[in-house]
Amino acid sequence: MIKINNITKSFGNFFALRGIDLQIHSGEFWIIVGPNGAGKTTLLKILSTLSKPTEGKIEIGRNISDQSGIELRSQIGFIGHQSFLYGNLSAEENLTFYARMYGLKNEKNIIHAKLTQVGLYDRRDDLVRNFSRGMQQRLTIARALLPDPKIILLDEPFSGLDQQGIDLFSSLLTSLITPERIILMTTHNLYLGWELATHYAILAKGKIVEKNSRGDMNFENFKILYRKRTGEGN
């Protein structure tokens, strides 16, 4: 379980996040939507321990985020719009590097299994700089899944993908959902990820203005709610 308690993040006089409260349980897939500058990436950075909150605390399982960053990071898989991959290394070398960073045992078997899962096993020896954006994003998923994380954070993961890439990425996202895992995805595109989500939160000007279980809500009603809460369309 992730328990976000009254998180505030400020940069000087500018408040990127104000009083964020959220409880997320295993098996839930949350989408956090909001216009640009709403604070979505800042929230994910705090959750991933890349940034410290100015006020408030985050509990992940039994850990409090700023007490044991290393332990927490070993449970988190992060997928952003940047791949974190090295163009001059092959797909397998990239995963080997990250497997060593995570201190994984039996790394070769894990890497081959993940490459097979994302459909890149046959391209494992190719340099990543020769991969298309879609292939890089699939390899990014393999990288994030290496430590078999309990929490997956996705920051605008569809950014820069063409329609075919989006379809493939969506189907891979489906395969990530398990009852033990928490998935949190930020996006400014309301439609992408909506079908997969179990819960949603709308973020505007650093505040959560609406959060709920998706339940039976259809996409059209969600769009209306989003416009009402943020004063924007999509």
Partner: peptide, 14 residues
Amino acid sequence: DHGSLLGLLLCPVD
């Protein structure tokens, strides 16, 4: 430039 510093910082190491 390629964001991989974030990837390094996200790894569970000091």
